[in-house]
Amino acid sequence: MLAGLAGELDKIPGIGDAAAKRLNDRSGTIGDVASEIESLAGNLRDLSGILANVGEALAGLGAKLTESGGSVNTLISWPAPAT
């Protein structure tokens, strides 16, 4: 969009060339920033998926720890043999 505007400004005699050049330069910079933001968004989506997997694994670990804790508790409270 900025490049199109620069093309229109370029048609204005006297001031159009300088303004069009500056606008073209800035539109390239804005385009670069937009590409970097898109890349960052993709990386954040990937990180979100990884963190979701870690959360699921930790939930599974918690369930196993609870289960093994119950088993240990059963062993500890088992009646001692009479002597």
Rank of each mutant, 00 (worst) to 15 (best):
M1K: 10
A3H: 10
G4D: 12
G4I: 05
L5Q: 06
A6L: 01
G7L: 09
L9V: 05
L9H: 02
K11L: 12
P13V: 08
A19M: 14
K21T: 14
L23K: 04
N24V: 03
D25G: 04
R26S: 12
G28S: 14
G28I: 07
T29F: 05
T29V: 11
T29Y: 05
T29E: 13
T29H: 06
G31V: 00
V33E: 11
E36G: 06
I37M: 13
S39M: 12
A41M: 08
A41R: 13
G42H: 06
L44M: 13
R45N: 13
D46M: 09
L47E: 09
G49R: 07
I50R: 15
I50F: 09
I50V: 12
I50A: 10
A52P: 01
N53I: 00
N53D: 14
V54M: 09
E56L: 10
E56A: 14
A59Y: 05
L61W: 00
L61M: 01
L61G: 00
A63H: 04
A63L: 03
A63S: 09
K64N: 06
L65C: 02
L65W: 03
T66V: 05
T66G: 09
E67K: 06
E67F: 03
S68W: 06
S71Y: 08
S71Q: 12
V72H: 01
N73E: 14
N73T: 12
N73Y: 06
S77I: 05
W78S: 14
W78E: 15
W78A: 14
P79M: 07
P79E: 08
A80Y: 09
A80H: 12
A82W: 01
A82Q: 08
T83G: 15
T83M: 11
T83S: 15
